[in-house]
């Protein structure tokens, strides 16, 4: 294949797949950006439940993380997508028969990837908690801060710094996992690539391209997290 043929294949507009792939890449990033705070936040709740929740909260949290860290992400996605569909269909069959419910693939993706991300995030948070010296709690208590104030004003800012490398890793894993959502027909980068490759029979070209785009997004994210880590270490002694 000549270079000009290759360029027209990747051009924007009629006959080219550039715009479709760009849209796919943007959707991949959107999916990850929407899922990430949900996963990290739920992960923090899970970690808090395991540290200081009651017996029931603790065992619920442990079971939750055990299940979603043990299941293949693909299977979790199917369980959420088909499971929710069937559940809602049964619900609506009794109250409003004839109504057909479709779960948006984007939403199913956010929920499935979110719960998996949260399960791993809870481990990151738990690890970070162990790095906070007990004296911090004692000092906060001596200052008369309430439990929620202690967590919000004293512990959390330090926790974030300790957890940052782990959180960066979680983002990378999430970014790569978004490609799975292609199997429930969300046209993110992977799915857009499959469509383009199938239509043109230029499988190698398009999969190499997708490989490169994912790599570029990973590299940029890696730089961004490296920058954040250095920034959060400002004012701390070297090696502290």
């Amino acid at each position: 294949m000549s270079a000009s043929e290759l360029l027209s294949l990747l051009s924007f507009g009629e006959g080219g797949w550039g715009d479709e792939l760009l849209k796919g890449a943007l959707l991949t990033i959107a999916l990850a950006v929407v899922t990430f705070p949900f996963g990290i936040g739920l992960g923090l709740l899970l970690a808090l439940a395991q540290r200081s929740g009651g017996r029931i909260a603790r065992s619920l949290s442990v079971t939750f993380t055990w299940v979603f860290r043990g299941l293949p992400e693909l299977l979790t996605l199917f369980l959420v997508f088909y499971g929710a569909q069937i559940g809602l269909r049964q619900l609506f069959a009794t109250i409003a028969p004839g109504v057909i419910i479709e779960i948006p693939a984007f939403l199913a993706g956010v929920v499935a990837l979110g719960v998996v991300n949260a399960s791993y995030a809870s481990e990151v948070w738990l690890g970070a908690f162990t790095a906070i010296p007990r004296g911090q709690y004692a000092a906060a208590a001596a200052l008369g801060l309430s439990r929620s104030q202690t967590l919000r004003l004293v512990i959390f800012p330090q926790l974030l710094r300790v957890a940052l490398p782990g959180i960066g890793n979680l983002w990378m894993v999430l970014l790569k996992d978004t490609s799975l959502v292609s199997v429930i027909s969300l046209t993110e980068l992977m799915r857009a690539t499959q469509v383009a490759a199938g239509a043109t029979k230029q499988y190698f070209v398009f999969y190499v391209l997708a490989f490169g785009v994912y790599l570029a997004i990973s590299a940029i994210s890696g730089e961004a997290f490296g920058h954040l880590e250095r920034r959060s270490a400002r004012g701390r002694e070297r090696g502290a």
Binding site: K176, S179, Q202, Y203, V205, Y207, V208, F211, L215, A219
Partner: peptide, 23 residues
């Protein structure tokens, strides 16, 4: 190592399986 760890396994798998088809 960097490029394998920076891309989804699914893309790698399709690259080998379908990419091979083209050649």
């Amino acid at each position: 190592s960097y490029s394998v760890r920076g891309t989804p396994l699914l893309v790698q798998l399709f690259l080998v399986y379908y990419g091979g088809l083209q050649f």
